[in-house]
């Protein structure tokens, strides 16, 4: 294949070009033999793995039978719900803690420091069990006029999971948000203050929107991580995707097959989340670069169109 680097339409006689149009370069491109070899090797290894799994004592037919089982679908829904709500608590709490941590007030910054120290320093599984069993310390939950209930009744498995994950996540999000807030140039704060904006206004209108560009990518990671970590709550009797698969596995006598099924569901959900993350990142990149990066769809279209061209290059 030969490559010519003229642009389509370039060098045509339409524009007043100086002198004769230049001779386009026609060169033999560098051959990358290593790429072909490594591709073959990778295919070979993949084939071996697939073969090994196909030979194993696993009843693959059981997976499609249960893939859209109502218990699985409802479990996946609960996994998603738990992820979304826990992350909501985590993000709001994280921003709050980050602002507290960076505050000039020594009391609020110490409280934030202590919170982060505790919740980051203990495993989330241990925290879940503690929340679940806090009835030993607080017999009743008593919001005087509004609500009074025994702790063991109040603390449903769902609430345990939500509090456990949300409060734990807030500690991690706090560090992510702090890095984001600190990444914003001090001149931005000064400009806002010189205009007479209050601290709060400066934070919400000027600093946080710019910090988001730094905060969003690791937050996307956290969401995906959270989605997978929710499988831990099977330990406190909450039936989400993993627990539902385990239950089916025990009843149907194909426990391992159901693990594969759960893995597939997790993979599908995390893939969808990654796409969402891409678009959010794109939104917060506005103003920071002259041209926004192409969306995946635009990339696909670009590739398809360029395939028709002789040089096959993407613009």
């Amino acid at each position: 294949m030969s490559t010519d680097i003229t642009k389509t339409g370039g060098g045509a006689d339409g524009a007043p070009s100086p002198a004769a149009p230049p001779e386009p370069i026609r060169a033999i491109p560098v051959r990358h033999y290593g790429r072909y070899v490594s591709a073959l090797l990778a295919l070979g290894v993949l084939g071996a793995i697939v073969y090994a799994f196909a030979q194993g004592k696993i009843n693959w037919g059981a997976i499609p039978d249960y893939f859209f089982d109502e218990r699985i679908v409802s479990g996946a829904g609960k996994t998603l719900l738990l992820t979304v709500l826990s992350m909501a608590i985590g993000i709001v709490g994280g921003i709050l803690l980050a602002v507290m941590r960076l505050s000039k007030n020594p009391v609020t910054s110490s409280i934030a420091w202590f919170y982060i120290w505790f919740f980051r320093g203990t495993p989330v599984l241990v925290q879940l069990f503690i929340w679940f069993n806090l009835g030993l310390v607080f017999q009743y939950i008593n919001l005087m006029p509004l609500y009074k209930q025994e702790w063991s009744v109040f603390m449903t498995p769902f609430l345990t999971a939500l509090l456990g994950f949300g409060l734990n996540e807030a500690a991690y999000m706090a560090e992510i948000c702090r890095a984001g807030l600190q990444s914003v140039d001090e001149g931005q704060t000064e400009a806002a203050q010189a205009l007479g904006m209050s601290h709060t206004k400066t934070l919400w209108r000027i600093v946080i929107p710019q910090a988001m560009r730094v905060i969003v990518p690791p937050t996307g990671n956290e969401v995906i991580n959270m989605l997978k970590t929710t499988s831990l709550v099977s330990a406190v009797q909450f039936t989400e995707l993993f627990r539902a698969s385990q239950d089916i596995g025990q009843q149907s006598g194909s426990p391992v097959e159901m693990y594969f099924l759960a893995a597939a569901w997790y993979l599908i959900m995390t893939s969808i989340l990654s796409v969402g993350q891409y678009y959010i990142e794109r939104y917060y990149a506005r103003g920071s670069s002259r041209q926004l990066p192409a969306t995946p769809w635009q990339k696909v279209r670009g590739t398809l169109f360029s395939l028709g061209r002789p040089n096959g290059g993407m613009a």
Binding site: G196, P209, G287
Partner: peptide, 26 residues
């Protein structure tokens, strides 16, 4: 207080060496 300082600054415009425009706004 911060609020009172902000009120004083409203009547004083400032232009910086590095512009300090808000990059996320037109």
């Amino acid at each position: 207080r911060d609020r009172e300082v902000a009120a004083q600054r409203r009547d004083i415009g400032m232009v910086f060496q590095r512009f300090n425009l808000f990059p996320h706004m037109t």
